[in-house]
Amino acid sequence: MNLNATLFAQLVVFFILAWFTMQFVWPPIVKALDERAKKIADGLAAAERGKHDLELATKRSTEALREGKEKAAELLAQAEKRAAQVIEEAKATAKTEADRIVAGAKAEIDQEAVRAKEQLREQVSALVVSGAEKILRREINAQAHADILATIKQDL
């Protein structure tokens, strides 16, 4: 344990080694470490963002699904309503048509009946006249009593 010039030599070596480390060893490694730390931080942030996006998308898809269901239900209700309406309209049209046909038929029947009555009346009056003629051939002049015959015919 003697002291000698080794001390100074060691001192110089010490500074040379420290300088070398400062120049060539420390900076690249520290830079790489910082870069990696940044990469990891970015990766974590991206993962967080992805998670958030996924949550949003899930929410949106649920929302869309719900909306679609609602819309479908609404459409179904509308369609049912429309169908009911169509049926009602059809019923109404059919009823009107039926009424019209019935009315027409009735009118025709009435007409027919009037005509038949008219014919009947004429035939009856002719019959009556012919009957009365036969009875009154001898006493009544058809021309003379025409007005009476007409009155009778009117009353039939």
């Binding site: 002291l3 000698n4 010039a5 070596v13 070398f20 490694i29």
Partner: peptide
């Protein structure tokens, strides 16, 4: 105490170790 003397063995091994350690780290760097 005699500053005209220098320990050759200490110098050799300390420089050797310093160079070895720094060389390995330099390779990594």
């Amino acid at each position: 105490i005699d500053f005209s003397v220098i320990n050759i063995d200490t110098m050799i091994f300390s420089v050797l170790m310093g160079v070895l350690g720094l060389f390995v780290m330099w390779r990594v760097a």
